[in-house]
Write a protein that binds this DNA or RNA. Structure first.
Lengths: 147, 147
DNA sequence: CTGGTTGCAAAACGTTTGCAACTCT
DNA sequence: AGAGTTGCAAACGTTTTGCAACCAG
């Protein structure tokens, strides 16, 4: 499994380094971490890597299909092992809360886009935005019902 | 119409300034511009505004419900007149191309989320991601069908 | 050995903030 | 007059890049 890393790298003329293995391990251990959190995780695990190298490693690992990233809100994206990249995030713009729901939510949308244009939807890549029930209530009271 | 701006501002104890009017005009003229493009548009139109003020004006105009913004890809968001905020953007991660489709695409998803949790989906706020037919083909050839 | 890789420092990018000058009402 | 607004410059958080030292194959 980690040899998928070794062989995929060699196949592309790239090298298996301690940093790349450590970054992949950290992504697998944390399951949803930002680049900043990944450096910390690597270091806590006794490894060594700079933030720069984390960015470059993540780029490589993503090209190899071993990790994926998700954009939630405005900050840094979170990286996931490819195996756990199977859900849709829904984010409240009021309180920032994030819920994970099944990718099935967008299955019909994905089919509609594919049938129309051959477009392959990557349902998990960006979080859907909106307002949760509580924040919507608050806002209605603040704005007033008439405008 | 532009007096909606004046009256809404006064109602909240805010002032009608040349900059706010110019920023709103620029958003209406461009229909989908980044803050950077909006300063340029304001200046081209003979107005005067700093980038800082554009950001602050957009925040106010958005709070008043006159403009909205959309996150497409990684860069700066684009601002739209509220009247033209009724479509879903679909973006190819390969070539960066963006297509606009009817908000109906997500109508059932919106209903499902609302029924489940009272969540109000803001369907247009973030662009859906994926790969267009051409980029998907290219990628398959590059990666090889077996991985 | 040698080309891929690392890490630092610095730049780039988009956005926010402190503060003094200014202007709408 | 006075509170709200502006613009500059500087800080901010995230990501990218130039370059010299380094190390896997």
């Amino acid at each position: 499994m980690s040899d998928a890393l070794a062989s995929q790298l060699r196949r592309r003329g790239m090298r298996l380094t301690a940093q790349r293995r450590q970054v992949l391990d950290a992504v697998r251990a944390t399951r949803h971490a930002t680049p900043e959190q990944i450096v910390e995780a690597v270091r806590s695990a006794g490894g060594s890597s700079s933030l720069t190298t984390v960015y470059r490693s993540l780029e490589v690992l993503e090209a190899l299909g071993l990790v994926r990233h998700v954009h939630i809100g405005h900050g840094a994206p979170t990286y996931h092992p490819a195996e756990h990249y199977d859900h849709v995030h829904v984010r409240c713009n009021g309180c920032g809360r994030v819920e994970s729901v099944s990718a099935d939510l967008l299955a019909e949308v994905a089919r509609a886009l594919y049938d129309a244009d051959g477009f392959r939807l990557d349902a998990g890549h960006v979080a859907l935005a909106g307002l949760c029930a509580e924040c919507a209530d608050t806002k209605e009271r603040t704005d007033g019902p008439t405008g």
